[in-house]
Structures are given as structure tokens and as C-alpha cells.
Design a protein around this nucleic acid. Structure first.
Lengths: 344, 344
DNA sequence: CTTTGGCACTCGCGATGCCTGAGTGCTAAC
DNA sequence: GTTAGCACTCAGGCATCGCGAGTGCCAAAG
């Protein structure tokens, strides 16, 4: 276990390294941080911390740098979170509430997270386990082309083209839409598995193939993740050589999505902030990176996450306050809007 | 005017520099390219080309590098375009035709362009001057929230939330939708200016405010540009120091859009390929970059562009064949689908 | 008159070596 | 337990050097 001095020093090392990106030496610590200790004393403490595996030396006569494990101790025990000023918080919430639609809301949130934290931000679209079909409509585009529009209880709108073999009359489309609505409205999206749909197709008789085609596509929503400000990653000195790998990773929504889900993984208690540091990531591209993610909720269910991504040397305290405030904002906006009263 | 030898040598310099990223010397040229000339002779020609402003020397005793102007001469007079193998072309078209909807089509196209050219690719959503409203629907989500869905003749689907002060009954929504359809279907999107809408709102009597709210938002489509594979930019040796500026630029869809429009600017003949090189860009972030853009059409109108972005040292021939093939593919897909027969 | 070989010259780049300064660990004194 | 002092280490900056790629110019050959 660490004693108070070691804790103070570890905190100082992390603070300094985060802001300078240079290994921190005993003299600097003694001068810049009010520890009231001589460099020599600090050196002893540093050596202890290194033995514990919380600090590393890039080379013999360099200062210390926090190890992944050191960051972990920092975020779990030492980090001083200063809550956002109420005015700032209110401003964030206002901006979120002003969003025009779901997409806009997520984009705005991601941008705000990026600006506040100085990192690349990622927001995962809401997909609560219990999302239901709130509205469903078939729009005839031509006599052989329909547009299926589904609005889920999260506010997500998905639309798919449906191309037909045979022409269909508008009245028939309308009848079909009513039929679908009867069977599908308020049903959970998750429940739209093969068997259920097969049954539905049977029951509705005509247009069986059409129905299959239509419904099989409802569950794949358009935007799984929104990413803002990748430029912040490229600015980090430690990534100069590897930006392309990271960009490549972020370019593939499916991978990012899987990864986000995995990050949340264990701790899925609503509102919790998950932090994953450096080697704790499985993906090789993400070595040297940390992610701070906060989940937001719709109703009482975890629906998605707001996250920021940066080098392990990142300002965890700022990141945590930013993502939790924004995730809370999302929860609030969803809470206010979605049960259905349509308040803006 | 350049003589044949100078032209051959300029072409060789560009070819070599594009593939190696190293300044090209007279010896290399004499060895690698079948010019049948001694290095000394080539040196004379190089000196001439430098006097013409088509080549530069990074420093005395280095090889030559094409200047922006040199690239311009290259693309206008010297570049040898080899058309794509029919099988490749067919494959591209097949992949485009398989796209599920507009969004998917544009994303696929951008990815293909990026892979073929080895550059970052940008596709601008179709917005032909004469795009019309093909379908329009109001989906009741709650009693105070509607979703307006508009399908344009380009296949673009836009949806907007409409929040109401007063609750509205579903039947009323349906009636309203019919009214809107009567007045708006097949009208050009461009014509939806304030005056027309005002008139419409008057004529429809009730729900005047609602109508205003609804229609004012139709014209701002969701996705103006699709960007693929920014990682390719980061990989370019010449951009190591400046990736962040470029990423920053690409992060703002509005700027990218404006810029794409400006690039097409002059030559708007359908199917034309526009190339803009280095200093020809106004934006300071784009110095040292080139863009190759081909426009695609819907009907006979230019609707948008497929473009690739890279360093001035880019493989213009490959880029040109790639973007023109893909733009032609888009034109074809739109041509086949959009008049309304819904063929896949 | 054009082409070419030869030659002197230039200059970036990588390797080498030196020095400095920041930083350490250890020990002995407080 | 803390601190001052000291010897030691090592990365990074700086100058030096040699190499090699490349040039321009000139005079001879075609």
C-alpha cells in the first residue's frame, strides 16, 4: 500500500507529465509542487514507486513517467475531480437540448466532448435493450419502390429502400402499412428475430416476400458511432508516427462499435464512467491510448456511451467531468423527450 | 513551348517522383527510363525545364522535383491514361449497383475511390439543380411530435422532427400530409423559397406555423459529403507534420462542401474531371495538396462529385481513371434507378 | 550545332565524437 | 527519517568529417 507521501508524489508526477509530456525529475517535483521535500527524499520515493510498477524510466538518467498501472492507481485513488461550474453545465445542457434531431444531438455531443477534453470524442448511438418501434411508415416512391421508415423509442430514424418485383398500388401500400403497424408498433426491436418475422409473414398472407425483405432490415441502424475531431489525436506528440493506424481503426465503424461495447463490458451500472488505459486494450492499434467512457440512459436502461480517446497521458480528470456531464445531459434530454411528450 | 525531349523528361520526372517521393537526378532518368540520352544531356534539359518553372530543386546538388506548374503541364499534356480493364470496371459498377440505399451507395463509392487511388476520397451527395420532391410523408411519433420524411428525386431521404405546441390527432396528420403532398410533390426543391412557402401556408389555412416549420427544413439535406480513409493522408511522408491541419479541415463538412463546390466551379461540363494542384487552392491548409474530382449526373444534370485528395505528388493518372469510372458508375446507377422503375 | 565525357564543386545526410545538463543511486552526516 | 554531496549515466545538442548524389560548365567528339 502507498503512504501519503508516495501518493502525493505519484499525483504530482502524473499531473506534470500530463501537461508537459516530458519525463519528470525529482528537482522539478521539489520545486514546482509544494511538497516541502528535498529532491533526494523525493528520489527515494520515486524509486519505491518504480519498484511498485507505478512509474517507469524511459532510460537510466531520465525522469520518471507513469506506467499504465500508475495511471490506473491515479484514476482510482488520487485524481481530484472538480465538478463543472453550474453555468457551464447549464450551457452544455442547453446546447444538447437545442439539437434538431437525434443525429444532430449526437454530433453536437461528440463535438462538445472533443472540445472540453481536447481529445477525439466518440458517441455511440442509443440502442437500449428494450428499444421499441414507436412509429413505422411505408412511403411509396415509385410503383416499384417503397421507403420503409422506422422510428424507434430512442428517437432513431432508420429508412430503407424496398425494391419490388411487381408494381404495387398506393392503396395497397397503405393497407400493408396499417397491417405492419398493427403487428409491430410498440414491439421491442430486439424481438424481431427470424421466427417472429416468419410468423408475421405467414399471418399477413400476401406480400410475404416483401415483408421479409422489409423487416429483416429494420434492425441494422444507420449510425452506430459518431466521431469528432480526429485531428486532436494527430496533434499528440506520442502519436506522430502512428496516426495512420489509429485513423484506420476509427475509419471502420463496425470495429469502433465492437470496441466500445467491449469497453463498457463489465461495469454497466448506469452513469458509471469506465476508464481503460494503454495495455488494458486488446487491439494493438490502441496500445498507448486511453479511453474514458460514460454511459447514458434512456428510462432506466443504459443506451449508449459518450467517450473520449487520447494518449495514456491524458487529462483524466477533465475527461471524466466532460463525458459524465455530457452523458448526463443525453440522459436528461432523452428522459424529457422520449416518453413521448415531445417537449423541446 | 516544350520540345519532345523536354516533354519526355518532364513526364519521367513526374513518374519517378510520384513513386519514390525523392528528388530525381539525371543519372536515374538516364538509367531507368529508356530515353537513350546521357546524364549530361538530360541535365541540360532539366535546366531548361527549371527555367520554365516546371521543375524545382529543393537545394543545389539535389535532384529535381516537379513544381505545381510542372504537374499542371503533366496532367494537361503528358499524362498517359490507361483505361480500367473492363472486368474491373464491371466489378465496380456491380458493387455500386448492389448498394442498399443512397447513403450506402455514396459510402461504398468513396471507399472504392480511396482504395483504387490510394488517397483519401470525398463524395458529394447528389444535389442536382432540378431535384424534385418525389415523396413526402408525415409520421406521427407522439401526439406532439411528427416526423417529416422527404424523398427527393435523387433518392436522398431527409427526415426532421417537428415538435408541436398543441397535440394533434393522427387523422389530422394524415389530412395535413395529403394537403402537403398535393402542393409539393414533384416540385423542385430549389423552388421552396420563402415566398412560395408563405403562399402555401396561407392557402392551407390551419396549421400555418406548423407548415412553416416543416418546410423550412426540407432543403437542408443531411449528408453533404462522405469522406473515406483519411488514414491515407496521414501516411504521406510530406504530411507528417501537418496531418492535424488537414484532418481539422476535413472534420467540418460545411467547409469541405464549399470547397468541393468551388473546385468544380468553372468546368461544369458533365463527366469532366477537374484537377486542382497545390497553390491553386485558396485554403492555406491545402497547400501542397491536389484534388482530382469527377462529376456525376442524374438525368443530364451535374449532381455531385467523386474526388480524391492527396499530396501534389499524387498518381494523377490512376486518380483520374478511378474517379471517372466511379462517377460514371454513379451516373449509371442513378440513371437506371431514378426515373422511377426501381430496378436494382 | 548537338551530344557526351570529364571534372570540379556543392551540399544534404549519416556517422562519429565530444560536451553538457538533467537526472539518478548511494552514502554519510544531520 | 531526511538531506547534502558525490560519482555516475545517458540523451540530446553541436561540430566535424566523409561520402555520394547531383549539378554546371567546358572542351572534345559526332
Amino acid at each position: 500500500m502507498l503512504n501519503q507521501r508516495q501518493r502525493d508524489i505519484l499525483r504530482a508526477v502524473v499531473d506534470d507529465y500530463v501537461s508537459t509530456a516530458e519525463p519528470v525529475g525529482s528537482r522539478t517535483l521539489s520545486r514546482k509542487y509544494g511538497l516541502g521535500l528535498s529532491p533526494a527524499t523525493i528520489r527515494n520515493a520515486l524509486a519505491d514507486l518504480e519498484d511498485e510498477g507505478l512509474l517507469r524510466q524511459p532510460h537510466t538518467s531520465a525522469g520518471r513517467v507513469p506506467s499504465d498501472q500508475g495511471y490506473r492507481v491515479f484514476v482510482e485513488e488520487l485524481m481530484a475531480l472538480s465538478p463543472l461550474a453550474p453555468s457551464v453545465r447549464a450551457d452544455l445542457l442547453r446546447r444538447q437540448a437545442e439539437a434538431e434531431d437525434l443525429r444532430d444531438l449526437l454530433t453536437q455531443t461528440a463535438r462538445l466532448a472533443a472540445v472540453l477534453s481536447g481529445c477525439t470524442a466518440i458517441v455511440r448511438s442509443p440502442r437500449p435493450a428494450g428499444a421499441r418501434i414507436r412509429a413505422l411508415s411505408l412511403v411509396p416512391v415509385t410503383d416499384r419502390k417503397l421507403l420503409l421508415v422506422v422510428v424507434s423509442s430512442t428517437g432513431a430514424v432508420t429508412h430503407r429502400q424496398v425494391l419490388l418485383e411487381e408494381p404495387i398500388a398506393p392503396e395497397e401500400v397503405a393497407a400493408l402499412a396499417v397491417g405492419l403497424q398493427q403487428h409491430l408498433l410498440e414491439r421491442p426491436l430486439d424481438a424481431l428475430t427470424g421466427r417472429v418475422l416468419e410468423g408475421l409473414a405467414e399471418r399477413m398472407g400476401r406480400h410475404r416476400d416483401l415483408i421479409r425483405q422489409v423487416i429483416g432490415r429494420v434492425e441494422a441502424p444507420d449510425d452506430a458511432v459518431v466521431i469528432a475531431h480526429t485531428a486532436h489525436l494527430a496533434r499528440q506528440p506520442e502519436f506522430q508516427q502512428r496516426v495512420d493506424g489509429l485513423l484506420d481503426f476509427l475509419d471502420r465503424p463496425d470495429r469502433v462499435l465492437r470496441w466500445m461495447q467491449e469497453v463498457r463490458g463489465g461495469s454497466s451500472s448506469p452513469g458509471a464512467v469506465t476508464i481503460r488505459i494503454g495495455a488494458e486494450h486488446r487491439d494493438p492499434e490502441l496500445q498507448g491510448c486511453s479511453v474514458v467512457a460514460a454511459s447514458y440512459t434512456i428510462g432506466d436502461e443504459v443506451a449508449g456511451e459518450v467517450a473520449v480517446l487520447g494518449p495514456t497521458r491524458l487529462d483524466y480528470a477533465t475527461a471524466v467531468t466532460a463525458v459524465s456531464a455530457l452523458a448526463a445531459g443525453l440522459s436528461e434530454v432523452f428522459g424529457a423527450r422520449l416518453p413521448g411528450e415531445g417537449r423541446q
